[in-house]
Amino acid sequence: MAAGELLSSRQREEILRNVRLAQQECGLRFSVYVGDTDDNTRGYARRLHGALGREGSRTVLVVVDPERRRLEIVTGEHAARQLDDRACALAGMSMTSSFSAGDLAGGIAAGVVMLGNHARQPRTLHTEQA
């Protein structure tokens, strides 16, 4: 890892791969921001989410600030229907426990997959077909 970088290129690839995996799994868009925020991390995360524009509604944004040791998960209006806050909190706890063990990239990668799994819509069983 070069000096002044939060993630090595291999870690970036791993996160990107898991973002794609989660997107395929549930059809929502996933976005991960790792870097500095401001003192109001939640507000900053919502501004980041707002910057996604029209895509925002069906996007799950994960914001990690390693310096302030904060994690925020923001779900858009459409995404929130598929991924409720409890599932986000659960994935968030799994991620923060990895972060506190010093595994930033691994925690993000696993957390994104977990969010994707939670957001997967169960296949509706149509009774008339039975």
């Binding site: 919502r46 925020e72 998960i73 986000c88 968030g92 506190s100």
Partner: peptide, 12 residues
């Protein structure tokens, strides 16, 4: 900022 956004917060 996105209004009425769901999600979760955490710290470590």
């Amino acid at each position: 900022p996105t209004r009425s956004a769901g999600g979760a917060s955490g710290r470590w």
